[in-house]
Design a protein around this nucleic acid. Structure first.
Lengths: 197, 197
DNA sequence: GGTTGGTATTTCTATTAGAAACACACTGCG
DNA sequence: CGCAGTGTGTTTCTAATAGAAATACCAACC
């Protein structure tokens, strides 16, 4: 992110990542960002200086070095093309469809479809904001890709709803045994169990 | 995975996850699987027994308990619908397009398009293998979804290639300064630097 | 005057990945 | 026969990453 040639603090990076990077990559945690910046500086890939905001408060901003720029450029050009990593909780629950009543499963997928459409619209707004700025030509391409990606995700959910309906109509959907009203529950966390005793 | 009612060892789970779950979720590591099975057993969600394969060697297989089945069922029905997590290295490199020569970027995206088509075809084969088995009705739906997902990913890559060509034609693609032949390199790891001194 | 919210960073714990080591069985090959 | 390679099955170690909380200070708002 520093290769865009602006001085950034750890906090700046987190905000920017949440806003932009998040559309096609996970946004790293604060602890990750701050420790990584220190490591990058130790290796000479970035330098830092303290900017005073008033008499008392300062913040540390980082800038990329020539070494760092060449290193990240070299990475981007030569790293192997790897498969995207996906963690799709909704699909996991479809895969485990035998656990859920067909109507509830339908609801879950429908909610995902609606969320996808909302995310598509958000990406469209961001892509418009970047439009025309030469400095943001590539980020704009990524945003346009994100817009289409979420549209595809929405359509895939729509098709899944049809598949689920068809399965229910065919009678091959196995209804699970009903739960007692106060069944023990895993916290909504995946894939493990809560670490609490 | 144990809710499919088969006794499985940690090794079985890893193999199955690599084969099937991987299409829409990450496949957990061995260390994660084995420690999680122990924790699940401590909480009473699974039980285990040792199966002797010959006089010397045995393996530990796990089975879900009633408590465990109700817990995972409850999770699947009530967990909030969360956004899928995506880590798309190729898109990250497009976003950082100012670092790479346009021709090289084109190659990277083209390779990703080809990989997506290959993965689509693989999912199609697996979906056929599951076809018709009532016990695998939901996994089959997930596989069909994966097939369409990879087709969409392929098409999005194709469209990205057109966008890249258009950007290059417009002259707004900023060619990076050439690298000296022996530039320092980051290991192909993201987003940090290698931890070696 | 007190609450809320934003900036900015550190620290702690838990989760997860990844590699390696270990042990044994089976197969193919010279 | 010996032996390399491959697959099953599990454990252990280290590193990476997430997530929450704590700390501070300032500004805006009621």
């Amino acid at each position: 992110m520093l290769s865009f040639e602006q001085e950034l603090s750890g906090y700046d990076i987190k905000k920017w990542a949440d806003w932009s990077l998040k559309l096609f990559y996970w946004s790293p945690s604060f602890s990750q960002i701050y420790s990584e910046l220190k490591r990058l500086e130790k290796h000479g890939y970035v330098t830092s200086r303290t900017v005073m905001q008033d008499d008392v408060r300062g913040k540390r901003v980082y800038a990329i070095t020539d070494t760092g720029r060449e290193a990240v450029r070299n990475w981007s050009r030569t790293a192997p093309v790897e498969a995207p990593v996906l963690k799709h909780g909704v699909l996991l629950r479809v895969w485990l469809g035998h656990l859920t009543e067909p109507e509830r499963l339908h609801e879950i997928v429908a909610e995902h479809r609606d969320n996808s459409e909302r995310r598509r619209a958000e990406a469209a707004v961001d892509a418009d904001a970047a439009h025309g700025e030469t400095a943001w030509a590539y980020p704009e391409l990524a945003l346009k890709w994100a817009e289409r990606y979420h549209a595809a995700e929405r359509d895939l959910a729509e098709q899944m709803l049809r598949d689920l309906d068809e399965l229910a109509a065919s009678g091959r959907a196995t209804e699970p045994v009903p739960l007692p009203p106060d069944s023990p529950s895993l916290a909504p966390r995946l894939p493990g169990v809560p670490s609490t005793e």
